[in-house]
Write a protein that binds this DNA or RNA. Structure first.
Lengths: 152, 152
DNA sequence: ACAAGTATCTCGCTGAGCGAGAGACTACTG
DNA sequence: CAGTAGTCTCTCGCTCAGCGAGATACTTGT
């Protein structure tokens, strides 16, 4: 194995993996009458809910790279689908809290649940030292991409 | 480290990495007056060109999940930007060959070039055995996602 | 009380992508 | 070989996600 070939092979693997994950997400979204943006929003909202953070339309729009008008539309859509609910923040009445509904959790479970279980099962076939190596590797790659993004 | 925690941490790392890569791509696309779809198309076309494969609008649309009308629009856009050129297939005159222009290669280089160099440099700080492990890991995860996609 | 700042929403618009189907060409069948 | 079915691409009309500009409602500092 040449010293140049192996890294390139890994680069292509990384790209291929992101493509597969994107397609998986897009197909899941389409099957549930969502747009890719809706799914990304849902993921963001569920992550925040699990971390106990309050999400407002402003924060959500910023995370997804939408302007305020687009964000209002997105929130309208999610609300119409019964995935979230708007609630005025009692402390600062300019703000709106986006509350995740039960249905959204179930949808998220349907999306992630099976895939995560499969991924974890596949990881079970690696020994702990290898998983630690994989983790170091992924952390290094993520740091590189994040740095490239920040600098440009 | 618990036996359950480490895999979940890896799952989140994988997701985080794909998010970073997506955002990187989206920002690059926006800066060059492209839509995310255009960039995905460009990547597909460059991959095919490197592999010496002929791409037609039909194949491209299928790869990106677009219908024929959307594909025509996409190809129009890429042609207008001077990234590709349409050529009738002399063998089967129903088909159109999408020929990648020099400008597209340069754009692709601008997108991938720097990032790939950084990724490869970061990989250089791992020893070959670790890279082999990372590769096995990525191949396993890609296979899981591909299988999940195929089955649903 | 007033000005400046912040969070969200409304309005009108652009354009990506869809469904339906037309047009051009090829391949199969009797 | 004619006729018909199949394939590839494109056109037309439409829907709707997301944008820019600005209105509205509320908060904060003076």
């Amino acid at each position: 194995m040449s010293e140049v070939e192996e890294p390139m092979r890994l680069v292509h693997l990384l790209r291929g993996l992101t493509v597969e994950l994107d397609l998986f997400g897009a197909e899941f979204a389409a099957r549930n009458g969502l747009h890719p943006t809706d799914l990304r929003a849902l993921i963001h909202l569920l992550d925040a809910a699990r971390a106990g953070e309050v999400v407002t339309p402003g924060r959500l729009g910023e995370a997804l790279g939408l302007n305020s008008a687009g964000t209002t539309g997105l929130v309208d859509r999610l609300e119409r689908l019964g995935l979230i609910r708007r609630e005025r923040d009692p402390g600062d009445r300019r703000k709106v809290r986006l509350v995740v509904e039960e249905r959204a959790m179930e949808l998220g479970q349907g999306f992630f649940g099976g895939l995560i279980a499969d991924l974890v099962a596949a990881m079970g076939r690696f020994d702990p030292a290898d998983l630690a190596t994989a983790r170091r590797f992924l952390e290094a790659m993520t740091a590189v991409v994040a740095a490239a993004r920040a600098e440009r």
